[in-house]
Amino acid sequence: RSRTTFTAEQLEELEKAFERTHYPDIYTREELAQRTKLTEARVQVWFSNRRARWRK
């Protein structure tokens, strides 16, 4: 699998969701996946990476 490139629109959606919760449940992730046209797995990994960046 090659590296996922996120569009500005996708990042906006993901960042907005991250402001609400750092640990979205499966329903939230599924909804985000549909809205951003990404897979739920990509959304999950993005949140994991985003939390790592947030901790630094």
Rank of each mutant, 00 (worst) to 15 (best):
E31T: 15
F6A: 05
H22G: 02
A52E: 14
R42S: 11
D25N: 07
R29E: 00
A52D: 08
F6C: 07
L14D: 00
E19K: 14
E13G: 03
T36P: 03
R50N: 03
F6D: 04
R55C: 12
A33K: 07
S2T: 11
A8K: 10
S48D: 10
N49A: 09
F18S: 02
A52T: 07
R55M: 10
D25R: 01
T28M: 13
R29S: 06
K16V: 06
E19Q: 14
E9S: 08
E9P: 11
A41L: 06
L11P: 02
Q10A: 06
T4Q: 05
E9K: 11
V45Y: 08
V45L: 14
R1C: 10
T5S: 15
V45H: 07
L38P: 01
D25F: 03
P24R: 04
N49D: 12
T39E: 07
F47E: 09
S2Y: 08
S48N: 10
T7R: 05
R3P: 09
R53E: 15
E15H: 11
R42C: 15
F47S: 02
E12T: 11
E12D: 13
F6P: 12
E15Y: 00
E19D: 08
N49W: 13
N49C: 14
E19H: 09
Y23E: 08
W46F: 02
Q44F: 06
V43F: 01
R20P: 01
R53T: 12
Y23M: 05
Q34N: 09
W54P: 10
L11W: 04
V43N: 04
T4F: 13
Q34E: 09
R3L: 09
I26Q: 05
E15C: 00
T5D: 15
Q44P: 00
H22D: 03
R55H: 07
N49V: 07
E15K: 11
Y23H: 07
A17W: 04
T36N: 03
L14Y: 03
T36M: 15
A41K: 12
A17R: 01
S2F: 09
E15V: 04
E31C: 10
P24Y: 02
Y27G: 12
E15S: 04
T4M: 15
T21W: 13
R29H: 00
R35C: 08
V43H: 00
E15I: 03
V45F: 07
T4L: 09
R42W: 11
S48H: 14
R20T: 14
I26W: 12
K56I: 07
H22V: 05
E31G: 06
P24D: 02
A52C: 09
R3D: 14
R29G: 00
R51N: 01
S2V: 06
S48C: 09
K16S: 08
L38W: 03
E9V: 10
N49M: 07
L11Y: 06
P24M: 01
R50H: 04
Q10M: 05
R50I: 00
Y27Q: 07
A17V: 14
V45C: 09
Y27S: 15
A8G: 08
A52L: 06
L38D: 04
T7W: 01
T39P: 09
E40Q: 04
T36G: 01
R55T: 09
L32M: 06
K16F: 03
E12I: 12
R53K: 10
F6L: 14
A52F: 05
T21M: 04
R1S: 15
I26P: 10
S48E: 13
T4P: 09
R50D: 00
T4H: 06
W46M: 01
Y27T: 13
Q10D: 03
N49S: 09
T39R: 01
E40G: 10
T36I: 12
W54Q: 12
Q44D: 14
T7S: 10
V45R: 07
R1K: 06
R20K: 10
F18H: 00
R53L: 14
L14S: 01
T28G: 05
R29D: 00
K16C: 11
K37L: 04
A8W: 06
K16M: 08
E12A: 12
L32H: 04
I26E: 14
T4A: 05
A17C: 15
T39I: 02
R55W: 09
T36A: 07
F6E: 12
Y23W: 08
D25C: 05
Q10N: 10
A52N: 15
L14P: 03
E40Y: 04
Q34M: 09
E19G: 08
W54R: 09
F47G: 02
T21F: 05
A52G: 05
H22Y: 07
I26G: 09
W46G: 00
L11E: 14
F18T: 02
W54F: 14
E13A: 10
T5R: 07
K37F: 07
S2H: 07
W46T: 01
